[in-house]
Design a protein around this nucleic acid. Structure first.
Length: 603
DNA sequence: CAAAAAATCGC
DNA sequence: GGCGATTTTTT
């Protein structure tokens, strides 16, 4: 078996069940004692008792086959995993039973310690409260379990928030922020918190040591550091002592994660070693080269000090993973915008998507509605600098829709199946409502005439200005994009889809572009707006042909341009993006149609 | 060399 | 203190 830190397929998955990982399962813990070859573990081997007396590989197989809740073997594993800074009063190596292993300081074989605390043997109600005790447990083990459960335990009652915090370098100075609790909200901030549960009679104090461990198994010490309150300077760990009688719970406020540089990885690990921090006794693990520097877990080690001065410790507990916000491999996916939000139900509409950084080899674009699902089509070379994707829409499931259909579009990361928030995309029917079409043509014709005298841009050869030429069809104003993002909110988006159009008439493209602009739309909607038309211009039967095949021709034109953005310079791309967002800003230095838009607005 | 990741800078 | 921009290093 190999537990690779950076394994994509395994990320966030329980390796036994294949189910998404939730906190740390008991299976996780058993991992600590079952290693690849059984020999790489330093320190005492697992005791030859009960289930653990079998060869490791057998244990492994046995557990793997079992779909029942964790058995007592797991609990034994918890006990054996307990390691420095806790120290056991008794040596671990002698032939001890699992019971003793689990409860080294007061196992069944140690009546003195039992009576010392004057506790009734098995009757604590608390011992019944924890579930997961299978009836499959063999006789006698129930005793052990109850004893185990009678012992106080450390529980993570508020998990750390998995994402959203950036690991800070030391060079960034400052406090490195603080880890929030998973239930933290804008208004109510929470912190990760632990709680001592179970019986605490005669318990004097509790010392909890928090450190960082690797996300994946085995949980090795992680080179990154915890900084903030209760983290001794330069230690990278956090130590708090609690009086469980006054407060069983402790919240870790102002706990930050300070990342070490890769070149300091070894030194940091060595430091942790010197501090005797290796909660799961993973020893000098090799293969730290591929250590995942973008994810950690908090690990809590707990030492109990009893009134009689004896010390006891609990097996280490780990939190859910915490991911560095800056890492593109794990960060939250986010779609910023599309250049258009509508397209034919036939698919093949070319769309530009701007998004937060993605990994070009680890991302897909999902279209879905109800049970239907399809993927946007693109190659890795269509992902531009990690922040833009040029793709083609998939065809909708139903080619005979008569109404527009809104579907969700979202980004999904292959490796962990994480998804972005969906945005809305509208599939347009092949045959839009004829009445609507006619009505809009009328309006366009009117506008077309009025704008005609101002149009001079057709002199620009389209082939030499691919982006500018195509822009009128593909780009929306920011306002309209906002509108279009809301299902059903766009009054113009469906305009002239599949309407006929004269492909050689640049004016037509301009007109449509003008219609794209809310300002123009408002203007022409104004009852006071003069709409008197000289008769005979662009009206009558020819009006239809004026708009012949606009969309088709656009697609053809556009389709002939390289889709690989890497052929263009950054400047060109930035121009594209920039114009997309602020079309009018380019007006002065561009011979594009935009010039006229501006002029019209100045009227 | 270009792209991506890491590390830093500075608003 | 959060975040994007910028610079440096790695691949």
């Amino acid at each position: 078996m190999v537990f690779k830190e950076s394994s994509h397929a395994m990320r966030d998955m329980d390796i036994f069940t294949g189910t998404p990982e939730r906190g740390v399962s008991d299976f996780d813990l058993i991992q600590e004692i079952i290693t690849e070859d059984g020999a790489s573990l330093p320190g005492p081997p697992p005791p030859p008792a009960d289930l653990l007396c079998q060869p490791h590989s057998q244990n492994h197989r046995r557990l793997r086959q079992s779909s029942s809740p964790p058995s007592q073997a797991v609990l034994v594993a918890r006990g054996t995993a307990c390691q420095p800074p806790c120290t056991f009063p008794q040596p671990l190596k002698q032939s001890c039973t699992s019971r003793e292993m689990a409860h080294p300081s007061r196992g069944a074989a140690s009546p003195a310690s039992s009576s010392r605390r004057g506790r009734g043997p098995l009757s604590s109600p608390a011992s019944k409260s924890s579930g997961g005790v299978s009836s499959q447990n063999r006789g006698g083990d129930t005793d052990m379990l109850e004893r185990l459960l009678q012992k106080p335990k450390l529980v993570v009652v508020e998990e750390p928030k998995e994402r959203g915090m950036r690991f800070r370098y030391e060079c960034e100075g400052r406090s490195a922020g603080s880890i929030l609790g998973t239930s933290s909200t804008e208004t109510t901030k929470t912190q990760p918190a632990i709680e001592i549960q179970g019986p605490i009679d005669h318990l004097k104090k509790v010392t909890v040591t928090a450190s960082l461990v690797t996300k994946d198994l085995p949980h090795r010490p992680h080179p990154h550091c915890l900084v903030g309150k209760d983290c001794p300077n330069g230690s990278g760990i956090c130590v708090v002592t609690l009086n469980p009688h006054s407060n069983r719970r402790h919240s870790f406020a102002n706990l930050g994660i300070q990342c070490v540089r890769r070149k300091e990885l070894d030194a940091s690990l060595q430091k942790r070693r010197n501090q005797n921090i290796d909660p799961f006794q993973t020893g000098h693990s090799k293969g730290i080269e591929d250590m995942d520097m973008n994810a950690v877990r908090l690990c809590f080690q707990c030492e109990l000090e009893w009134e009689d001065g004896n010390k006891d410790c609990l097996s280490p507990v780990v939190s859910n993973p915490i991911y560095d916000k800056k890492a593109t491999t794990t960060s939250q996916l986010k779609i910023s915008c599309l250049n258009q939000y509508k397209g034919s139900c036939a698919g093949k509409t070319e769309i530009y998507m701007l998004c937060d950084k993605v990994q070009k080899d680890d991302i897909e674009i999902i279209f879905r509605r109800g049970s239907w699902k399809a993927s946007g089509e693109f190659a890795q070379t269509d992902v531009h600098r990690q922040i833009a994707i040029v793709f083609k829409t998939p065809p909708y499931q139903d080619q005979d829709i008569t109404e527009e259909v809104d579907v969700d579009v979202l980004l999904r990361r292959l490796s962990d199946q994480m998804e972005s928030e969906p945005i809305c995309f509208t599939y347009l029917p092949h045959n839009p409502d004829p009445y609507e079409v006619k009505r809009k043509r009328k309006i366009k014709s009117d506008i077309s005439f009025r704008e005609k005298p101002c149009v001079t841009a057709e002199t620009a050869p389209a082939a030499e200005q691919p982006f500018l030429y195509s822009q009128p069809q593909t780009m929306m104003s920011p306002d309209e994009r906002l509108c279009a993002a809301q299902p059903g909110a766009s009054a113009l988006g469906e305009m002239c889809y599949s309407e006929p159009q004269d492909s050689n008439n640049d004016d037509t493209a301009l007109i449509n572009q003008l219609l794209d602009m809310p300002a123009i739309w408002e203007m022409i909607s104004d009852p006071g707006f003069p709409l008197s038309m000289p008769s005979g211009f662009d009206q009558g039967p020819n009006a239809n042909s004026t708009f012949a095949n606009m969309d088709m021709n656009f697609n053809q034109n556009f389709g002939s341009y390289p889709q690989d953005f890497s052929h263009y310079s950054d400047l060109q791309f930035n121009m594209l993006v920039h114009e997309n967002q602020t079309p009018q800003s380019e007006a002065q230095d561009s011979p594009s149609n935009m010039v006229h838009v501006k002029k019209e607005e100045e009227l």
